[in-house]
């Protein structure tokens, strides 16, 4: 699997990163060399191996359905870029 600059552009767009053509070129070169490293994996036979998603083989612990939080809106919004009347403001969302 070789990475193309179109792949890099698509990935940058999916990740919401603005990149110039020069940056795309540079990222392409570096990512290609990293994928050179990563491709070593493909030689390994992993038939029948269960993927390991967590370090511990445990089940999810469940929380009782009890309200524990109170409003901290003012505190939380004190670090927000733009708020008005308790709402976070963003450029217009068009559906």
């Amino acid at each position: 699997m070789s990475l193309t600059t179109d792949d890099v552009k698509k990935v940058a767009s999916l990740a919401r990163l603005a990149m110039t053509d020069a940056e795309i070129q540079a990222a392409h070169a570096q990512m290609s060399s990293i994928f050179g490293l990563i491709e070593e994996m493909q030689a390994v036979n992993t038939d029948g191996i269960e993927p390991m998603a967590h370090a511990q083989d445990l089940a999810q612990r469940l929380r009782e359905d009890v309200v524990s939080e109170t409003s901290q809106r003012e505190l939380f919004q004190s670090v927000a870029p733009q708020v008005e009347r308790g709402l976070y403001l963003v450029p217009q969302v068009i559906e």
């Binding site: 699997m1 191996i49 269960e50 993927p51």
Partner: peptide, 20 residues
């Protein structure tokens, strides 16, 4: 990239198997 459509099995899933 490794999570994107068509690559998940080859990269992410493969890596999780080797992790084991």
């Amino acid at each position: 990239y490794v999570l994107s459509h068509g690559y998940y099995d080859a990269y992410y899933l493969k890596a999780q198997k080797i992790r084991r």
